[in-house]
Protein backbone atom coordinates (compact mmCIF):
# COMPACT_ATOMS: atom_id res chain seq x y z
CA UNK A 1 0.00 0.00 0.00
CA UNK A 2 1.47 3.35 -1.00
CA UNK A 3 1.46 6.31 1.28
CA UNK A 4 -1.13 8.38 -0.58
CA UNK A 5 -3.73 5.62 -0.42
CA UNK A 6 -2.97 5.08 3.23
CA UNK A 7 -3.44 8.76 3.76
CA UNK A 8 -6.67 8.68 1.87
CA UNK A 9 -7.87 5.78 3.92
CA UNK A 10 -6.98 7.59 7.11
CA UNK A 11 -8.82 10.59 5.78
CA UNK A 12 -11.82 8.42 5.07
CA UNK A 13 -11.82 7.00 8.59
CA UNK A 14 -11.45 10.50 10.00
CA UNK A 15 -14.32 11.83 7.93
CA UNK A 16 -16.60 8.94 8.81
CA UNK A 17 -16.75 10.18 12.37
CA UNK A 18 -15.15 13.56 12.51
CA UNK A 19 -16.19 14.46 16.04
CA UNK A 20 -14.95 11.27 17.60
CA UNK A 21 -11.61 11.37 15.83
CA UNK A 22 -11.08 14.98 16.65
CA UNK A 23 -11.61 14.20 20.32
CA UNK A 24 -9.31 11.17 20.17
CA UNK A 25 -6.60 13.31 18.60
CA UNK A 26 -7.03 15.97 21.27
CA UNK A 27 -6.84 13.40 24.05
CA UNK A 28 -3.76 11.82 22.50
CA UNK A 29 -2.02 15.16 22.12
CA UNK A 30 -2.76 16.06 25.71
CA UNK A 31 -1.53 12.70 26.96
CA UNK A 32 1.68 13.12 24.99
CA UNK A 33 2.10 16.63 26.31
CA UNK A 34 1.61 15.41 29.87
CA UNK A 35 4.05 12.56 29.26
CA UNK A 36 6.71 15.00 28.13
CA UNK A 37 6.20 17.61 30.82
CA UNK A 38 4.92 15.88 33.95
CA UNK A 39 5.32 12.16 33.36
CA UNK A 40 6.02 11.18 36.97
CA UNK A 41 3.27 13.25 38.49
CA UNK A 42 0.61 12.43 35.94
CA UNK A 43 1.15 8.81 34.98
CA UNK A 44 0.47 7.20 38.31
CA UNK A 45 -2.13 4.59 39.03
CA UNK A 46 -3.61 6.58 41.86
CA UNK A 47 -3.96 9.64 39.66
CA UNK A 48 -5.98 7.73 37.10
CA UNK A 49 -8.02 6.09 39.82
CA UNK A 50 -8.87 9.47 41.28
CA UNK A 51 -9.94 10.77 37.90
CA UNK A 52 -12.07 7.69 37.35
CA UNK A 53 -13.79 8.30 40.66
CA UNK A 54 -14.46 11.97 39.92
CA UNK A 55 -15.78 12.17 36.41
CA UNK A 56 -18.82 9.88 36.82
CA UNK A 57 -20.60 12.68 38.74
CA UNK A 58 -20.94 14.98 35.79
CA UNK A 59 -20.39 12.16 33.32
CA UNK A 60 -23.70 10.58 34.25
CA UNK A 61 -25.48 13.92 34.06
CA UNK A 62 -23.98 14.52 30.62
CA UNK A 63 -25.38 11.21 29.40
CA UNK A 64 -28.85 12.32 30.45
CA UNK A 65 -28.53 15.68 28.74
CA UNK A 66 -27.27 13.90 25.64
CA UNK A 67 -30.43 11.81 25.42
CA UNK A 68 -32.64 14.85 25.85
CA UNK A 69 -30.65 16.71 23.21
CA UNK A 70 -31.00 13.87 20.71
CA UNK A 71 -34.77 14.29 20.93
CA UNK A 72 -34.28 17.97 20.13
CA UNK A 73 -34.69 19.06 23.73
CA UNK A 74 -32.37 19.67 26.64
CA UNK A 75 -32.37 18.79 30.32
CA UNK A 76 -31.22 21.65 32.52
CA UNK A 77 -32.67 20.06 35.65
CA UNK A 78 -30.01 17.35 36.10
CA UNK A 79 -28.10 19.07 38.87
CA UNK A 80 -31.29 19.92 40.75
CA UNK A 81 -32.52 16.35 40.40
CA UNK A 82 -29.14 15.00 41.51
CA UNK A 83 -29.03 17.17 44.62
CA UNK A 84 -32.63 16.48 45.56
CA UNK A 85 -32.00 12.75 45.26
CA UNK A 86 -28.81 12.88 47.29
CA UNK A 87 -30.39 15.00 50.03
CA UNK A 88 -33.42 12.74 50.33
CA UNK A 89 -31.15 9.68 50.42
CA UNK A 90 -28.88 11.38 52.94
CA UNK A 91 -31.88 11.82 55.25
CA UNK A 92 -32.77 8.17 54.74
CA UNK A 93 -29.20 7.13 55.48
CA UNK A 94 -29.25 9.13 58.71
CA UNK A 95 -32.29 7.14 59.79
CA UNK A 96 -30.69 3.88 58.76
CA UNK A 97 -27.42 4.58 60.55
CA UNK A 98 -27.10 2.22 63.49
CA UNK A 99 -25.94 3.18 66.97
CA UNK A 100 -22.46 1.90 66.18
CA UNK A 101 -22.23 4.17 63.14
CA UNK A 102 -22.62 1.37 60.62
CA UNK A 103 -25.28 0.55 58.06
CA UNK A 104 -27.40 -2.58 57.74
CA UNK A 105 -26.54 -4.75 54.74
CA UNK A 106 -29.68 -3.84 52.83
CA UNK A 107 -29.13 -0.08 53.19
CA UNK A 108 -26.98 0.57 50.13
CA UNK A 109 -29.02 -1.48 47.65
CA UNK A 110 -32.13 0.17 49.09
CA UNK A 111 -30.92 3.74 48.68
CA UNK A 112 -29.78 3.04 45.14
CA UNK A 113 -33.09 1.48 44.23
CA UNK A 114 -34.96 4.42 45.73
CA UNK A 115 -32.61 6.87 44.02
CA UNK A 116 -33.35 5.29 40.66
CA UNK A 117 -37.09 5.49 41.34
CA UNK A 118 -36.79 9.11 42.44
CA UNK A 119 -34.75 9.98 39.36
CA UNK A 120 -37.35 8.33 37.16
CA UNK A 121 -40.09 10.30 38.90
CA UNK A 122 -38.25 13.62 38.43
CA UNK A 123 -37.68 12.73 34.79
CA UNK A 124 -41.30 11.80 34.32
CA UNK A 125 -42.27 15.22 35.64
CA UNK A 126 -40.06 16.87 33.00
CA UNK A 127 -41.37 14.50 30.36
CA UNK A 128 -44.96 15.41 31.19
CA UNK A 129 -44.22 19.13 31.00
CA UNK A 130 -42.53 18.72 27.64
CA UNK A 131 -44.86 16.22 25.99
CA UNK A 132 -48.30 16.89 27.45
CA UNK A 133 -48.08 20.58 28.21
CA UNK A 134 -45.86 21.42 25.24
CA UNK A 135 -43.55 23.65 27.26
CA UNK A 136 -40.27 24.19 25.38
CA UNK A 137 -37.79 21.78 27.02
CA UNK A 138 -35.28 24.50 27.83
CA UNK A 139 -37.90 26.35 29.90
CA UNK A 140 -39.59 23.29 31.37
CA UNK A 141 -36.35 21.81 32.67
CA UNK A 142 -35.00 25.19 33.75
CA UNK A 143 -38.16 25.60 35.83
CA UNK A 144 -38.10 22.10 37.24
CA UNK A 145 -34.38 22.40 38.01
CA UNK A 146 -35.12 25.58 39.93
CA UNK A 147 -37.97 23.80 41.67
CA UNK A 148 -35.84 20.80 42.65
CA UNK A 149 -33.10 23.08 43.94
CA UNK A 150 -35.75 25.09 45.76
CA UNK A 151 -37.07 22.00 47.53
CA UNK A 152 -33.50 21.14 48.51
CA UNK A 153 -33.02 24.63 49.94
CA UNK A 154 -36.34 24.56 51.76
CA UNK A 155 -35.51 21.19 53.32
CA UNK A 156 -31.97 21.96 54.36
CA UNK A 157 -31.81 25.76 54.66
CA UNK A 158 -28.77 25.48 52.50
CA UNK A 159 -26.84 23.43 55.05
CA UNK A 160 -24.92 20.27 54.25
CA UNK A 161 -26.46 16.99 55.34
CA UNK A 162 -23.64 14.80 56.51
CA UNK A 163 -24.46 13.06 59.77
CA UNK A 164 -24.92 9.64 58.24
CA UNK A 165 -22.73 6.59 58.45
CA UNK A 166 -19.40 6.78 56.67
CA UNK A 167 -20.06 3.21 55.56
CA UNK A 168 -21.89 4.51 52.51
CA UNK A 169 -19.03 6.66 51.34
CA UNK A 170 -16.55 3.88 52.06
CA UNK A 171 -18.58 1.39 50.03
CA UNK A 172 -18.75 3.61 46.97
CA UNK A 173 -15.12 4.62 47.28
CA UNK A 174 -14.11 0.96 47.20
CA UNK A 175 -12.20 -0.43 44.27
CA UNK A 176 -13.05 -3.60 42.45
CA UNK A 177 -10.01 -5.94 42.50
CA UNK A 178 -8.30 -3.05 44.30
CA UNK A 179 -8.11 -1.39 40.92
CA UNK A 180 -11.34 -0.07 39.47
CA UNK A 181 -13.32 2.53 41.42
CA UNK A 182 -17.00 1.71 42.02
CA UNK A 183 -17.98 5.12 40.61
CA UNK A 184 -16.43 4.17 37.30
CA UNK A 185 -18.33 0.89 37.30
CA UNK A 186 -21.64 2.65 37.86
CA UNK A 187 -20.85 5.08 35.05
CA UNK A 188 -19.74 2.30 32.71
CA UNK A 189 -22.88 0.28 33.36
CA UNK A 190 -25.10 3.27 32.55
CA UNK A 191 -23.03 4.20 29.51
CA UNK A 192 -23.21 0.65 28.16
CA UNK A 193 -26.95 0.50 28.75
CA UNK A 194 -27.47 3.79 26.94
CA UNK A 195 -25.11 2.82 24.13
CA UNK A 196 -27.07 -0.38 23.75
CA UNK A 197 -30.41 1.44 23.78
CA UNK A 198 -29.29 3.98 21.21
CA UNK A 199 -27.55 1.74 18.72
CA UNK A 200 -29.20 -1.63 19.02
CA UNK A 201 -32.83 -1.15 19.93
CA UNK A 202 -35.92 0.15 18.25
CA UNK A 203 -36.15 2.74 21.02
CA UNK A 204 -32.84 4.24 19.93
CA UNK A 205 -33.76 4.44 16.26
CA UNK A 206 -37.03 6.06 17.15
CA UNK A 207 -35.29 8.57 19.39
CA UNK A 208 -33.06 9.79 16.57
CA UNK A 209 -36.02 10.01 14.22
CA UNK A 210 -38.08 11.89 16.78
CA UNK A 211 -35.23 14.36 17.15
CA UNK A 212 -34.98 14.75 13.39
CA UNK A 213 -38.64 15.67 12.99
CA UNK A 214 -41.38 15.35 15.60
CA UNK A 215 -44.09 15.86 12.98
CA UNK A 216 -42.91 13.07 10.74
CA UNK A 217 -42.48 10.90 13.82
CA UNK A 218 -46.13 11.44 14.69
CA UNK A 219 -47.21 10.68 11.14
CA UNK A 220 -45.12 7.52 11.28
CA UNK A 221 -47.16 6.31 14.21
CA UNK A 222 -44.47 6.76 16.85
CA UNK A 223 -45.83 7.35 20.32
CA UNK A 224 -43.91 10.56 20.65
CA UNK A 225 -45.26 11.54 24.07
CA UNK A 226 -44.24 8.20 25.53
CA UNK A 227 -40.80 8.35 23.90
CA UNK A 228 -40.20 11.79 25.39
CA UNK A 229 -41.32 10.69 28.83
CA UNK A 230 -39.10 7.61 28.70
CA UNK A 231 -36.15 9.70 27.61
CA UNK A 232 -36.50 12.30 30.33
CA UNK A 233 -36.96 9.45 32.81
CA UNK A 234 -33.64 7.91 31.77
CA UNK A 235 -32.07 11.33 32.04
CA UNK A 236 -33.53 11.67 35.53
CA UNK A 237 -32.12 8.28 36.51
CA UNK A 238 -28.67 9.30 35.24
CA UNK A 239 -28.90 12.49 37.26
CA UNK A 240 -30.00 10.63 40.38
CA UNK A 241 -27.06 8.22 40.11
CA UNK A 242 -24.78 11.21 39.62
CA UNK A 243 -26.23 12.59 42.84
CA UNK A 244 -25.55 9.34 44.66
CA UNK A 245 -21.91 9.50 43.55
CA UNK A 246 -21.64 13.11 44.71
CA UNK A 247 -23.08 12.00 48.04
CA UNK A 248 -20.29 9.44 48.34
CA UNK A 249 -17.49 11.65 47.03
CA UNK A 250 -18.28 14.55 49.36
CA UNK A 251 -19.64 12.33 52.12
CA UNK A 252 -22.45 14.86 52.38
CA UNK A 253 -25.33 16.37 50.42
CA UNK A 254 -26.08 20.04 49.84
CA UNK A 255 -28.46 22.07 47.74
CA UNK A 256 -25.72 23.90 45.86
CA UNK A 257 -23.29 21.10 45.10
CA UNK A 258 -22.31 20.86 41.46
CA UNK A 259 -24.10 24.00 40.31
CA UNK A 260 -21.43 24.56 37.65
CA UNK A 261 -22.18 21.14 36.22
CA UNK A 262 -25.31 22.21 34.32
CA UNK A 263 -23.54 24.32 31.75
CA UNK A 264 -20.43 22.14 31.83
CA UNK A 265 -22.50 19.09 30.90
CA UNK A 266 -24.21 20.90 28.03
CA UNK A 267 -20.76 21.89 26.87
CA UNK A 268 -19.53 18.29 27.02
CA UNK A 269 -22.51 17.03 25.09
CA UNK A 270 -22.12 19.59 22.31
CA UNK A 271 -18.39 19.01 22.15
CA UNK A 272 -19.13 15.29 21.92
CA UNK A 273 -20.83 15.96 18.62
CA UNK A 274 -24.49 15.96 19.64
CA UNK A 275 -26.49 18.39 17.52
CA UNK A 276 -28.29 21.00 19.64
CA UNK A 277 -31.25 20.85 17.25
CA UNK A 278 -31.66 17.12 17.73
CA UNK A 279 -31.43 13.94 15.73
CA UNK A 280 -27.67 13.60 15.71
CA UNK A 281 -25.01 12.48 18.16
CA UNK A 282 -23.33 9.38 19.50
CA UNK A 283 -22.46 8.29 22.98
CA UNK A 284 -18.82 7.53 22.17
CA UNK A 285 -18.22 11.19 21.36
CA UNK A 286 -19.82 12.28 24.61
CA UNK A 287 -17.83 9.78 26.68
CA UNK A 288 -14.62 10.96 25.02
CA UNK A 289 -15.52 14.58 25.76
CA UNK A 290 -16.11 13.68 29.42
CA UNK A 291 -12.73 11.96 29.61
CA UNK A 292 -11.02 14.83 27.83
CA UNK A 293 -12.40 17.33 30.32
CA UNK A 294 -11.20 15.29 33.27
CA UNK A 295 -7.74 14.73 31.77
CA UNK A 296 -7.34 18.42 31.02
CA UNK A 297 -8.42 19.46 34.46
CA UNK A 298 -6.31 16.94 36.34
CA UNK A 299 -3.35 17.49 34.06
CA UNK A 300 -3.50 21.22 34.58
CA UNK A 301 -3.50 20.66 38.32
CA UNK A 302 -0.04 19.16 37.95
CA UNK A 303 1.24 22.62 37.12
CA UNK A 304 0.99 24.40 40.45
CA UNK A 305 1.92 27.72 38.90
CA UNK A 306 -1.01 27.69 36.57
CA UNK A 307 -4.34 28.49 38.12
CA UNK A 308 -6.79 25.63 37.81
CA UNK A 309 -9.31 28.21 36.73
CA UNK A 310 -7.67 28.24 33.33
CA UNK A 311 -9.48 25.00 32.66
CA UNK A 312 -12.65 26.98 32.21
CA UNK A 313 -10.92 29.21 29.68
CA UNK A 314 -9.52 26.28 27.74
CA UNK A 315 -12.81 24.48 27.86
CA UNK A 316 -14.84 27.38 26.48
CA UNK A 317 -12.19 28.06 23.89
CA UNK A 318 -12.18 24.45 22.73
CA UNK A 319 -15.96 24.45 22.41
CA UNK A 320 -16.03 27.57 20.27
CA UNK A 321 -13.07 26.36 18.22
CA UNK A 322 -14.79 23.06 17.48
CA UNK A 323 -17.98 24.85 16.47
CA UNK A 324 -16.02 27.08 14.12
CA UNK A 325 -14.24 24.05 12.65
CA UNK A 326 -17.64 22.45 12.09
CA UNK A 327 -18.77 25.61 10.40
CA UNK A 328 -15.94 25.39 7.89
CA UNK A 329 -16.15 21.65 7.24
CA UNK A 330 -19.93 21.72 6.89
CA UNK A 331 -19.88 24.76 4.68
CA UNK A 332 -17.36 23.03 2.45
CA UNK A 333 -19.69 20.07 2.27
CA UNK A 334 -22.65 22.24 1.36
CA UNK A 335 -20.69 23.94 -1.36
CA UNK A 336 -19.75 20.71 -3.08
CA UNK A 337 -23.22 19.17 -2.91
CA UNK A 338 -25.15 22.29 -3.76
CA UNK A 339 -26.36 22.15 -7.34
Amino acid sequence: MTTPTLLKKAQGIYRSDRHVWRLIIMIALWLIFMAITRFRKFYTLINFQTMAAQFPEFGLMSLGIMLAMITGGIDLSVVGAANLTSILMAFLLINLTTATGGLPAYAIPLVFLLAILLGAAFGLFNGLLVSKFHIPPILATMGSGELFTGICMAMTNGNAISKFSRAYSRAINNRLFDMIPVQLIIFTVMAVIIWFLLSKTAYGSKLYLLGTSPTVARFSGLKTDRLLMQTYMISGICAALGGMIMLANYNSARADYGTVYTLQCVLIVVLGGVSPVGGRGKINGVVLAIILLRLLETGLNRFPKISSYYISLIWGGVLILVMVLNYFTENAKVKTTNT
Binding site: Y208, L209, T212, S213, T215, V216, F219, G279, R280
Partner: peptide, 9 residues
Protein backbone atom coordinates in the same frame (compact mmCIF):
# COMPACT_ATOMS: atom_id res chain seq x y z
CA UNK B 1 -41.08 17.28 3.25
CA UNK B 2 -42.51 18.18 6.61
CA UNK B 3 -44.77 15.23 7.36
CA UNK B 4 -43.64 12.27 5.30
CA UNK B 5 -39.91 11.90 5.52
CA UNK B 6 -37.00 12.26 7.88
CA UNK B 7 -34.98 13.99 5.18
CA UNK B 8 -31.54 13.98 6.83
CA UNK B 9 -31.91 10.32 7.85
Amino acid sequence: LSEGLFLPR
